[in-house]
Amino acid sequence: MKIAYTGWTWLINHEDNYKWEFEQFLKEVSDLGYQAVENFAFITKYFDNDADEVNGLLKKYNLELVNLYEHYTNDPEADYQSALEYVDFMKRTGATYLNLQGLMWEDAPNNRPTDDARIREYAELSNKIGKLCRENGMYACFHPHANTPVFTEEQIDLLMEYTDPELVYLCLDTAHTTLAGMDPVKAFDKYASRLAYVHLKDVDPDETVHPEWPMKRFRPLGVGTVDFKGIYKSLQKNGYDGVLCVELDIQPVCNYKSAMVSRRYLHDVLGL
């Protein structure tokens, strides 16, 4: 399995300094021994769609770009047009996976009743983007996420039912499945046949911590209570040999420290 890290949290500080921050991200995760990286698809804008410049930085730090991450809006046609641009950029950088995420809300309540009509809309769009990805030798991976219409087990099941298994795959996230009330190990077993990409992060089990925004309970690997040994065994049992991508939304200290703690855990505990 290939070990990757997500870089968007480096790129949220200085609007006029994104290229420097992206290179700093590459420098730090390379130093820590990660093999690959992913980033939100907005890096295509930061680099004016210049794949050669990104490739030069990746080569400088001996890293591979494996994934771009697209966020849906309320405009499916615009989302598909964005996917066309992202897939073109991915072809020129060698990336293989396009993550897809539903529109995220930031107002209460965090969890909302299942919206079957919206999930059907996402399924239709995801099938269309999935076909585009397959035609270009890539995988479209839907990412269930807190504060979006596809989060709970019921909602994931509906999306899987409404999408073509040969076009739309899953990116399961260990922390979001935990927040959704699922047992992550059982979830990885259940969805093994649709799994094409993995996000790893830990969770503080104390639900009294940040009840207004539970994603603030996310932690570096080994600092919470997610059963990563069990998840790794599930992945091995089901023949998964893809990317394990670490991500962390909130940093206890800084990006480098979080990435270091997680990399040490993967090496010392899982032998990766």
Rank of each mutant, 00 (worst) to 15 (best):
R118F: 05
P184I: 01
K131P: 12
Y80N: 05
L159R: 05
D189L: 09
I12V: 04
E166A: 05
Y197W: 03
Y122V: 03
M215A: 08
G137P: 07
C171H: 08
G242W: 10
F25S: 03
A51D: 01
L57A: 02
Y240E: 13
F25L: 07
A140P: 10
L170I: 06
T9I: 00
D115A: 13
G33K: 04
E77T: 00
S126C: 08
T163R: 05
P211Y: 06
P252M: 09
D164G: 03
P205R: 10
N111M: 13
R264W: 01
E70N: 12
D173T: 08
D31M: 02
K91T: 02
V269M: 15
L179M: 11
D164T: 03
V66W: 15
A196H: 04
R217T: 07
Y197H: 11
T225E: 02
T163N: 09
G181S: 10
H71G: 12
V243R: 02
M104E: 14
D189T: 07
C254T: 14
L58W: 07
F89A: 08
L172M: 15
Y197R: 00
V261G: 11
L63H: 03
A123W: 14
N55H: 02
D116N: 15
K216Q: 14
P76E: 12
G94Y: 06
Q251F: 05
I129H: 02
G230P: 04
Q236Y: 13
Y34S: 00
H143Q: 10
R112N: 11
E77A: 12
G239D: 05
A123H: 12
L179N: 06
V253L: 04
E70L: 15
S234T: 03
A146M: 15
E64Y: 00
C171N: 14
E207F: 01
I12W: 07
E70M: 07
Y197L: 06
A123M: 12
D52E: 03
Y61D: 01
F25D: 08
H143T: 06
L158C: 07
V243F: 02
Y232L: 10
S258Q: 13
T163S: 07
N74K: 12
D204V: 09
H145V: 10
D50H: 06
D183C: 14
A175P: 06
L11R: 02
D88H: 05
I129G: 10
M104T: 15
V209A: 13
S82W: 00
P76R: 08
P184M: 02
R120I: 04
R219I: 01
D16T: 01
K257Y: 07
V37G: 10
Y162A: 12
H176Q: 09
R92W: 06
N127M: 06
C171I: 10
T178W: 10
L167Y: 05
L68S: 04
K128N: 15
N49V: 00
K229C: 09
V168Y: 05
V253R: 11
C245M: 14
F22Y: 01
M1F: 13
I3S: 10
E124N: 06
Y46M: 11
D241V: 04
Y69E: 00
L195F: 08
L179W: 06
A41L: 09
N74T: 09
T96P: 06
E154T: 13
H145K: 13
E38L: 01
S258W: 06
G137E: 12
I250S: 14
A4C: 12
P76N: 12
A180F: 13
T174A: 15
H143C: 03
I3W: 09
G94W: 01
L57S: 04
V243T: 08
